[in-house]
Amino acid sequence: MSENLLMKGNEALGEAAVAAGCRYYFGYPITPQSELIEYMAKRLPQVGGTFLQAESEVAAINMTYGAASAGARVMTSSSSPGISLKQEGISYIAAAQLPCVIVNVMRGGPGLGGIQPGQADYFQATKGGGHGDYHSIVVAPNSVQEMADLTVLAFNLADQYRNPVMILADGALGQMMEPVSFQNSSIIEVEKPWTITGMGERATPNKINTVVLNPEGLEQVNVNLQKKYAVLQEREVRWEQSRTEDAELVLVAYGITSRIAYSALEMARATGLKVGLFRPITLWPFPKQALANAVSQAAAVLTLELSAGQMVEDVNLAIKCTKPVYFHGRTGGMLPKPRDIYEQIVSILATRGDK
């Protein structure tokens, strides 16, 4: 499948997963990601794969654990409250160092929330979410094309680092339709000698176990994980920036919000205001040094999110509070308007000009 196709984000993600070699999917329907589970139900049998609608999100994540243990390329998906139910299983998967892809098409919250887009799961995704010192790799698309491209990347990273990878999308990206191409899917094949698929030529069978009862052994598990996370923070940081070279104010946004921010940037530039945009693509590891470099000449930063303010904490940490960081957020499934952001840009730069 190479030509440009008009697809929903959820469907593009599903097709990219199949192209990336995913042959097992376990999930449970919840809006606004239901098209993804429907797509996998139809598509996987066509390529000899296995689709199973589990009885719950808890069951789905544990089925994912099992398939990953056998070396399968496996995916599960849900939306905000459903991802909350998966947290214990995600922690176990991270502890066992198993590769899998977990999709969160975020909705507004808290609680059951609504079916409109949100970004208030940032802390849950990037700070672990479950128990213990662990990290999922977290990637954040901002287009239907990236819903596809970052899905392929997610499977590659999961196998390469034996780690869960979360695709943090939102209801707008999941539901919107845009042209998408699958011709640039670059699949990395990784050997998996650790799988529990039988002894083969091994003298003893492989074991995957997260129960380590002695403190010294459990600490070594944590030391090994932290070494891996340090490598990830060095090698697998991704971002995009636009017109930051001379910017007096740098906008920081991810996902669908970054596209709205870019519209506001163009409005500001059209009136002579020097504004740039920095978009994290990996939310964990967060591109701290890249952001610090991008805002080094700026007077201030404006962080934009569909939340009450979560990524803004990582922005402050990245620049070590050396510059004022303003915030613009919408919640409950509401999207900001470019005009509203533009007006805040004007206000911030006017205030900074008075100093």
Rank of each mutant, 00 (worst) to 15 (best):
I345T: 06
D314Y: 09
V312L: 03
M334K: 06
L335T: 10
T331E: 14
E343I: 06
L317Q: 15
C321H: 15
V312K: 02
K320H: 14
G329E: 04
G332H: 11
D314Q: 10
C321E: 14
K320P: 08
V325W: 02
R339G: 03
P336F: 05
T331N: 09
P324S: 12
I319G: 06
V312E: 03
M334A: 10
I345M: 07
K320C: 14
V325K: 02
P338Y: 03
R339L: 09
Q344F: 12
T331Q: 11
F327V: 01
C321M: 14
G329R: 00
E313V: 12
E343K: 06
I341L: 06
P324M: 09
T331R: 05
G332F: 11
V315D: 04
I341Y: 00
A318G: 06
R330T: 12
K323V: 14
L317C: 14
H328A: 03
K320G: 13
C321S: 13
V315K: 01
Y326D: 03
Y342I: 05
K323H: 12
L317F: 15
I341V: 11
I341N: 00
V325Q: 00
R339M: 03
E343S: 07
R339H: 04
M334P: 05
E313I: 14
H328L: 08
N316S: 11
V325H: 01
R330S: 11
T331M: 13
